[in-house]
């Protein structure tokens, strides 16, 4: 009996400066299979479809539950999380490529540390006085919690940045994820002590003004963050801040 198989085409690149090549794989189909389990299978049996031995694929992954944000890659051309990419829902051959906007490390692994640098640049934290006992936190009504919670679900996968036409090495656009975090922290009763700093930061080169409102971010976000709304709100706040700064002199 011939077993059902799944065809993969995976873009390989041994190092940042090496040429890229496509390798084809043919794997046995299993129910519930996702792209990650296919790559695990290749690691256990690193042989291409034409029977040539190769190396296991280098890729980032960790939780496999779409919550750690590691395994973002382009699958059939689209940036998404590999763990939630079920083979049965994909057109074959399944083409897997690394994210294109980030420095490539190897194969499907890229360096997304720019996001963490951006979070630093906008002071994406609540400045607590200290970790010693200082009593309970500020009151937050459920309505506020429900408004902020979606923003705090950002998993730093960088899909919103990958799909953004404005996010590239010419504009150095900050990307939707960071802007959403600015909104989150500006909304927090204590976090908003840095509100003005964050807004001024966002008006820097590569800031919020670079957004072209193509709205790809909100389409691609695997956690359905209200990204365009955050961009809109923060654009307004940045503008008002800049106007205030100008008028104050």
């Amino acid at each position: 009996m011939a077993n059902k198989t799944v065809a993969f085409e995976i873009k390989r690149q041994a190092s940042p400066n090496a040429p890229s090549v496509w390798e084809n794989f043919e794997l046995e189909w299993r129910p519930g299979m996702n792209v990650i389990s296919a790559m695990m299978e290749i690691a256990a049996n690193p042989v291409t479809a034409d029977g040539r031995g190769t190396t296991p694929i280098t890729y980032d992954s960790n939780c496999l539950e779409e919550i750690c944000g590691s395994c973002a890659m382009r699958i059939n051309g689209k940036a998404r999380m590999a763990c939630s990419a079920l083979v049965d829902n994909l057109e074959q051959p399944i083409k897997v490529e690394p994210l294109s906007k980030f420095p490539l490390v190897r194969d499907l692994q890229v360096d997304r540390s720019v996001l963490f640098e951006n979070l630093k640049a906008v002071k994406a934290w609540v400045p607590v006085d200290g970790t010693y006992a200082l009593g309970s936190g500020p009151r937050v009504f459920p309505q506020q919690q429900e408004a902020n919670y979606p923003l705090s679900n950002c998993i730093s996968c960088c899909c919103c940045m990958e799909v953004c036409p404005q996010f590239n090495d010419v504009t150095n656009f900050v990307g939707a994820a960071t802007i959403a975090q600015v909104k989150l922290f500006n909304n927090h009763p204590t976090g908003n002590v840095f509100k003005e700093d964050r807004l001024r930061a966002l008006a820097g080169d590569g800031g919020i003004q670079e957004c072209g409102f193509a709205q790809n971010c909100v389409e691609a976000c695997p956690k359905q963050l209200p990204l365009t709304e955050a961009i809109s709100d923060m654009s307004r706040d940045v503008l008002i801040q800049k106007a205030k700064d100008f008028l104050r002199g």
Binding site: W125, V126, V128, T131, A133, L134, G135, S136, G137, P138, V140, P142, Q145, N148, Y149, S152, F185, H188, T190, G191
Partner: peptide, 11 residues
């Protein structure tokens, strides 16, 4: 309480 102060969006 500390986590609350740090901004964890508890229900």
């Amino acid at each position: 309480d500390l986590l609350d102060r740090m901004g964890v969006p508890f229900n």
